[in-house]
């Protein structure tokens, strides 16, 4: 099979992105192209389309097709207590500071299937802070949000997650927080009592809460530099002064001018605080 001509494919990609935006309101125009193109090619294969153009046609004319496309473009992959050292740093360096607030708001932006949301809930529970905390877990993918709110995961993942939990400094065993049934585990209902799962698109939606801690790990890696910067500005504006920001372990702020408004708490863990005095321009809300 001959490979698609790169320039032709670029035109097809542009039209696909335009259709998704104008027909369905999902704006991927500021996503980093390499990963986006890869995911769209996968969609072409999965849906057995002859080309990206056929995918675009179905997106325009088939009523529910957009759901599957969005699902394919968001690809939520995570685990509980992923990068245990980060959760240990949150436990040891951030939660003791948050303890001084009477109310604690945590925003997890791009929560995907929710593994890290429950990890946070457990962390807050074990620090004795959960009763006065609230976690806002957001994602633009309704399907992922639904899964996240159910908190049901394959049992085969539990072993790795239990190990992560202990490495992150967990006080008990992870099994204390779920019940296993057949090939699945279900996180306990009581972990959900202070979590709100809400649809929010980092590209098009504005700030909606005043947060003491924002977690957004491995989401901005899919964004172009300008969109990364704008999203960081959104986080900054959502954070209280001195509020914490936690990013993915391999994320870089080198090309984000807004980074001057954050100071590193633990740069290796990608843990930052909003500085007290803002230096850069405040966020331009998207039109």
């Amino acid at each position: 099979m001959p490979l698609p001509d790169i320039e032709l494919e670029q035109i097809e990609m542009d039209l696909f992105v335009l259709a998704l935006k104008r027909r369905h309101g999902f704006d991927f125009s500021q996503y980093a192209p390499a990963s986006l193109t890869r995911r769209v090619r996968q969609l072409v294969q999965v849906h057995q389309c002859a080309s990206i153009t056929e995918l675009t046609a179905r997106l325009l004319h088939e009523a529910d097709f957009v759901t599957q496309v969005v699902q394919g473009l968001s690809v939520p992959v995570s685990e509980m207590f992923r990068d245990p050292a980060v959760f240990r740093a949150l436990r040891e360096q951030v939660l003791p500071m948050l303890a001084s607030y009477p109310r604690i708001n945590v925003w997890q932006a791009g929560c995907a299937n929710g593994q890290e949301v429950y990890s946070l809930a457990i962390l807050l529970e074990e620090a004795g802070l959960y009763e006065r905390s609230h976690i806002f877990a957001t994602d633009f993918n309704p399907d992922a949000l639904q899964r996240a709110s159910e908190g049901i995961y394959p049992a085969k993942d539990a072993q790795l997650w239990s190990r992560n939990y202990l490495e992150a400094g967990g006080n008990h065993t992870l099994a204390n927080y779920y019940s296993a049934r057949y090939d699945f585990i279900r996180l306990h209902e009581r972990l959900r009592r202070h979590i709100t799962f809400t649809n929010h698109n980092l590209v098009t939606d504005r700030m909606f809460c005043e947060a003491h801690l924002v977690l957004c790990r491995n989401v901005l890696i899919y964004f172009s530099n300008p969109l990364q910067n704008r999203t960081l500005a959104l986080f900054r504006d959502s954070l209280v002064r001195g509020g914490y920001l936690c990013l993915g372990l391999r994320e870089s702020l080198d090309f984000a001018p807004v980074a001057v408004d954050f100071s590193a708490v633990d740069a290796g863990m990608r843990l930052y605080r909003r500085t007290l005095q803002l230096t850069s321009e405040t966020c331009d809300a998207p039109a």
Binding site: S35, S78, G248
Partner: peptide, 18 residues
């Protein structure tokens, strides 16, 4: 733990896709 990709302008991009 990350896929390594490269953009047209020859900057690196990372991904945690499957």
């Amino acid at each position: 733990g990350y896929h390594l990709l490269i953009e047209n302008d020859r900057h690196f991009a990372l991904s945690v896709d499957e």
